[in-house]
Amino acid sequence: MSTAQHIWTVIGVLFVLLNIAAGLIWVERRLLALWQDRLGPNRAGPLGLLIVLADTLKLFFKEDWIPPFASKAIFVVAPAIVAGTVLISFVIIPFAPNIVVADLNIGLLFFLAMSSIGVYSIVLGGWASNNKYSLLGALRGASQMIAYEVFMGLSLMGVVMLSGSFNLGAIVEAQRDLWFVVTQPVGFLVFFIAGVAETHRLPFDIPEAESELIAGFHAEYSGMKFGMFFIGEYLGITLISAMTVTLFFGGWLGPSFLPPLVWFILKTFFFIGVFILLRASLPRPRYDQLIEYGWKVLLPLVLANLMITGAVALYLKDS
């Protein structure tokens, strides 16, 4: 690809992503309303679509306030980290055969690294707020994310073994005959659960736990700084959905009556819907139950999965 093409891809991806993140405000609220026998936002614009604009404008025009007791610099940087790392993670995602920002051969590792850095935004945000609720949220967030980081990484190794590559384009190509969700069901489940925990969405929204910690780590944030956390969350959902599709559901592959990009987007939106459905239906476990579930259930599961996959891969290679 030429440089100009590259730049256009970057701009295009950024534009689409930011719009999706904002648009998800509407999608989530309408879907939740649908499942909860309500109407949801339906006043501003057709089908209430302009609620997105109204919400964004509201966030922009709110007073940009930093509590006097907070550590200023860190307080400001924290929300940027989450939005930044998630956006950067998107560079490795192959949206269609030729649409990828950076075709890294260590794509998967890059994704894991970025999501690890994302943890900092919660820890720093909660700590810099200098508020007890935020601190509790940050502590919960740190232990939750670190634990689930482990299973997330391990759950993907099966896919890497089967495809023989860390490159996401190659992983998609390797699914031409069979999606990895068939050969790696355990890997898929663990990855998706860890993904929910990574994006700290209900039922794993323990760092913010509305009914306990009010808003947890972002209790002190308002205006566009809060907006960054908000966008970070929606981008996170999109990222995990896109990764799930890429790794387990054949990425842009699909019957040829629709272009690859459309297949990718459709599949991604399906998983975004699953995220929202989870939020509508499940209660929140307790913090220690979540960690226990991770270490005692998920970890043995992924390890077993890893060993079996390895053994089968070796056997197939030899025979």
Binding site: L32, W35, Q36, D37, R38, L202, P203, D205, A209, E210, S211, R279, A280, S281, L282, P283, R284
Partner: peptide
């Protein structure tokens, strides 16, 4: 009670 435990939807059905 369900909402306190993080379950968002029941409260809407029950209030209906």
């Amino acid at each position: 009670f369900a909402q306190d435990l993080g379950q968002l939807s029941p409260v809407f059905y029950m209030f209906t």
